[in-house]
Design a protein around this nucleic acid. Structure first.
Length: 288
DNA sequence: ATCCAGGGACGCG
DNA sequence: CGCGTCCATGGA
């Protein structure tokens, strides 16, 4: 069993991190810890006083560096929070509410598939579907005498037919997952090239070529995997909270998307993705 | 029963 | 380009 402990880590609240809608494979245990499967590892995260204890089963990578990368521990969120808090009282309030949020750096392949599944779907069901996909196509890994399943590799998931995927409850997203998997498998779409592009716009333009990836899903991939903090995913919640706070349109569903993007860009100073996540968590926890 | 979910593809004008 | 419509599924 691997173990890694950090002390006095700023901005690290388990609930805030794992339940702010950015990830789907973490589950709360009875003792308050969370267990999740990332890359080739099962990881348990527990908070005790001023310590955060990571334990797990990690076969192929250095445990410590995997943790530090995934949780982005070399980024200081205090600076983000300070800047955003100065913008207005709403930002200050939402940051106090979700003070322990960190944006994770999740595996690109898994994030692409996960957020294609997220389209017109709800978080509990997204989690269930991803779990089923992992059980059926991913490798088994054990931890504390229990079985877990890694998210399937590109090759593993490419074995699934459209019908296989439909049988897992994917609904109309079956073909999208199939097509995107094949595009990535045969290098028609190159994940490594994507990572090397030097700005968010170019990356987004590239991601939009994938079946099932539209503006919102692309922004989620950019923010939750590639850590492009200027990406601003607009879903029903973000649209709602932005309208409530800044636009005051009678019908929030009619708020223009371009207008929203421009507002976020001007207001949040290149940190719109971070701001978005505090606002999303705040609104959704209080009203969801 | 009807509505809704971290939307996107597609066809239309 | 902007806009409506359809798309599976399951929980409220």
């Amino acid at each position: 069993m691997e173990k890694y402990v950090i002390e006095n880590q700023e901005s690290f609240n388990l609930k805030h991190i794992f339940e702010c809608g950015q990830c789907f494979r973490w589950n709360k245990e009875d003792d308050g810890s969370y267990i999740g499967v990332i890359k080739n590892a099962v990881i348990k995260v527990k908070k005790e006083n001023n310590k955060i204890i990571f334990t797990g089963n990690c076969k192929t990578k250095d445990f410590k560096s995997l943790i530090r990368y995934y949780f982005d521990l070399d980024t200081n969120y205090s600076e983000y929070k300070e800047k955003l808090s100065k913008i207005d009282e709403y930002m200050k309030q939402s940051i106090e509410f979700g003070e322990g949020i960190r944006i994770l750096k999740q595996d690109l392949w898994e994030t692409i598939i996960s957020f294609i599944i997220s389209a017109n779907n709800n978080i509990p069901r997204i989690k269930k579907i991803i779990e089923r996909i992992s059980e059926k196509y991913g490798d088994k890994i054990e931890f504390e005498e229990k079985e877990y399943f890694l998210f399937p590799t590109i090759e593993q998931l490419s074995k699934a037919s459209v019908e296989d995927l439909r049988a897992l409850g994917l609904g109309f997203r079956d073909k999208r997952i199939y097509n995107t998997t094949q595009m990535i498998l045969n290098k028609e779409f190159d994940l490594e090239k994507l990572k090397k592009l030097d700005n968010t716009y170019l990356m987004k333009e590239e991601l939009l070529k994938l079946d099932g990836v539209g503006p919102k899903v692309a922004d989620c991939i950019l923010l939750f995997s590639l850590k492009r903090i200027d990406a601003f995913p607009i879903d029903v919640w973000v649209r709602r909270v932005m309208n409530d706070l800044y636009i005051h349109n009678e019908d929030e569903t009619k708020v223009n998307k371009k207008e929203l993007e421009k507002l976020a860009e001007n207001k949040f100073l290149g940190l719109s993705g971070i701001a978005q996540q505090y606002l999303f968590y705040w609104k959704r926890e209080l009203e969801g």
